[in-house]
Write a protein that binds this DNA or RNA. Structure first.
Length: 706
DNA sequence: GCAAGGTC
């Protein structure tokens, strides 16, 4: 009898592996203070299944000081670097203690670069085990079959993969930490202000994409063009008719067309009908879910990820950080549908789908080595979901339903009309078969457009002809969802990190509001990097790193060589940077000053024409209030009182009650939104009542518990 | 006080 330790990446994986390997299928979960592990028996062996929580170890500089350059690092427990982290210590301590009388170690983390590294570091630094004697379980799904097979035919640790992972961490650390410090300290040394100005392998290109778009919009010159708006009539029904050309280049041409068509009728020359089938959509992977949730609910991708994580922890949906669009056969879709059938909200659709003889879900193209596509588990919620959680859950359930639907069939009709030398079109669209759209209902919509039944040779009168004056428009600004898609397409960041990186542009102050308009600070940072470190702005940096990681995995390069080269390059960069620190600092300070100034403005003054509202600190009383920029010259007397505590950030919206500007107040852990007119606003009375009501409910609940 | 990558 021997004692075997299996190291996994996360608690849910540990549980599944323990259940699959335990002879009775019911492993014992042993609680140890703030951590736990699973114990099972198999073939007279005792299996101890422990879990990490992603990375438990981090890189730390070996030399002290918040300075640059810092080129040497070592692996240390996460809690040594991140003060707030409370979870890594109990897990590392538990592994350390349990490892003392283990005969055999098995790494069973996700089979990818980061997973292999997580396993290796836990093995070496938490368990003090000899990695050459440990083995590796390799599985692609957490099904009993895969787990048992991988347990029975173990491999050795994949050292080239682990090396590649280490290099990824080290290069990102070297560039990210050193350049961020260089930027930040240049400002500190020039102006004495401490404001983190960050960059990195992914942040750099992301900022540069947004800047490129901002630039394209700023230099865009709209050109005029003209359109023709035609309303026709057929047996008393008014019809919108499309002119053959959507864009007419000159005013003269447009006017001539209007003249030609006025008071005429058009003859129907041909009627074209085309049937088109539309297959069901693919199962959700994380980015698909994020993009759909943004479209329908306006949720930022980072919010969708956070909500999905909660649903996953409540066992309502499968693991959300997946890139797979496949529902493998091992998932019992019938059981999931049966469970959903018991829910009033979903029973009708589930019942209908369960009538289908062979339940085969639609599959998408993308795969993931570790997890299937996002799908509901069918479990009933054990608590009341928040409105946002409910929305996201509903979207996931209905998308799952849609996978079993028939293709939708649409028919488009185009009637070709002629009047004199001009051609026009009358278009209609109708849905013949709803198919999967029935199941995905609120989230699948096609505008149907009815047209009367007409036949070739008939004519209809053109009752109104109007010229439309238009301008071409610049490219659209990014939104959180479209920017995330760009990162995905360029293979920058990962499914778990992209949404956070998109948010970081805003939280660092590189962009204003959520419109991805670049701030003066963003421009100054970009300018500096372009001049001194263009490499960190290009996606080539990532491509090069990927290449070298590949070579390490193929055995064509050694980790130490790649690292030495990275350090050498970085050191020359940092040297020139330090020599120019003063100029760099001055440029960044200028951008920062203008950024802060820009931020202080809350919006137009409601009382006068040319003023803007700003936050003013009274020199006499020291109290802050909102006033008009014309207040100081006594041209405008508009003022609003402000709460005296907390950080105030203006919001891009108006109060629904009084129309005044809204802002957010953050005081300690609390934050709330209110309008600038809060002392007078009628809506605030309602808010106060609402707050009172909630407070009462809360205190009642507390009493109930007692 | 910093990166990017896992995870809760």
């Amino acid at each position: 009898m021997s004692k075997i330790m299996i190291i996994t990446e996360k608690p849910t994986a540990a549980k599944k592996i323990a259940e699959a390997l335990d002879e009775k299928g019911s492993p014992k979960e042993v609680q140890k203070r703030k951590a736990s592990y699973f114990e099972c028996s198999r073939n007279n062996d005792i299996l101890i299944v422990v879990y990490a929580l992603g990375h438990l170890f981090e890189l730390k500089q070996t030399e002290p000081g918040w300075k640059y350059p810092r080129l040497d690092t070592e692996w240390v427990p996460k809690y040594e670097v991140i003060k707030k982290d409370k979870s890594s210590k109990p897990l590392i301590n538990l592994m350390n203690k349990l490892a003392k009388d283990i005969d055999q170690f098995i790494v069973a983390t996700d089979y990818d670069i980061e997973g292999s590294l997580i396993g290796y570091l836990s093995l070496v630094y938490a368990c003090n085990a000899e990695p050459n004697k440990a083995t590796r379980m390799i599985f692609s799904t957490l099904t009993k079959k895969d787990i048992v097979e991988s347990y029975e035919s173990p491999s050795s640790l994949d050292f080239p993969m682990i090396d590649a992972g280490q290099v990824r961490h080290e290069v990102d650390w070297l560039y990210g930490i050193n350049l961020t410090r260089a930027l930040t300290l240049s400002v500190k040394n020039v102006a004495g202000w401490f404001k983190i100005i960050s960059t990195g392998r992914v942040q750099g290109p992301t900022l540069s994409f947004v800047a490129k778009r901002d630039y394209d919009i700023n230099v865009y010159v709209p050109t005029p063009f003209w359109g023709i708006k035609i309303i026709g009539e057929y047996e008393g029904t008014k019809l919108e008719i499309e002119f053959e050309k959507k864009k007419i280049e000159t005013l003269l041409d447009a006017d001539n067309i209007v003249k030609d068509l006025r008071n005429t009728s058009a003859t129907i020359k041909a009627i074209n009908r085309r049937k088109r089938t539309q297959s069901p959509p693919s199962p959700f992977n994380l980015s698909g879910l994020q993009s759909e949730a943004y479209r329908h609910f306006g949720f930022k991708p980072s919010r969708t990820l956070a909500l999905a994580q909660k649903l996953y922890l409540d066992a309502l949906i499968s693991y959300p950080r997946t890139s797979s669009q496949k529902i493998p056969e091992s998932i019992d879709v019938k059981q999931i549908l049966k469970n959903l059938e018991t829910r009033k909200k979903y029973s009708a659709e589930a019942k209908q789908i369960l009538k289908i003889e062979k339940l085969i879900p639609k599959q998408g193209e993308k795969t993931d080595p570790a997890h299937p596509a996002i799908h509901p588990t069918g479990n009933k919620p054990t608590r009341r979901l928040t409105p946002s959680e409910n929305k996201l859950y509903d979207l996931i359930v209905r998308r799952f339903f849609a996978l079993f639907g028939e293709p939708a069939v649409k028919e488009s009709i185009r009637a070709d009309l002629v009047s004199g030398k001009h051609k026009m079109y009358l278009r209609g669209l109708r849905i013949i078969e709803y198919g999967w759209m029935r199941y995905y209902k609120p989230y699948a919509y096609t505008k149907e457009k009815e047209i009367p039944s007409i036949i070739e040779g008939e004519s209809l009168s053109l009752t109104s002809i109007e010229r439309e004056d238009k301008f071409t428009s610049p490219p659209a600004r990014y939104n959180p969802s479209s920017l995330l898609k760009v990162l995905e397409r360029k293979n920058l960041g990962t499914k778990s990190t992209r949404s956070g990186i998109v948010d970081s542009l805003r939280s660092r102050g590189y962009t204003l509001n959520d419109t991805f308009e670049i701030s003066t600070l963003g421009y100054a940072t970009l300018d500096t990097l372009e001049t001194y470190v263009p490499r960190v702005l290009s996606i080539e940096f990532t491509r090069h790193l990927e290449e070298e990681m590949g070579q390490i995995q193929d055995g064509a390069q050694r980790r130490e060589e790649v690292l030495a080269e990275a350090k050498r390059d970085l050191l020359t960069l940092l040297k020139t940077f330090k020599e120019q620190e003063k100029e760099i600092g001055q440029a960044l300070v200028a951008g920062l000053q203008r950024y802060w100034k820009a931020k202080e403005e809350l919006g137009p003054c409601p009382a006068c024409e040319d003023g803007t509202l700003i936050i003013i600190k009274s020199p006499k009383t020291g109290k802050r209030f909102v006033g008009c920029t014309n207040y100081r010259e006594k041209k405008c007397e508009q003022t609003f009182a402000l709460p005296q505590k907390g950080i105030i950030t203006p919001l891009e919206k108006e109060c629904p009650h009084c129309g005044h500007i809204m802002f957010q107040v953050r005081s300690g852990r609390r934050k709330w939104e209110t309008c600038v007119n809060w002392t007078e606003c009628p809506g605030r009375q309602e808010d106060i009542q609402e707050l009172e009501k909630r407070r009462k409910q809360r205190s009642e609940k507390k009493e109930d518990k007692k």
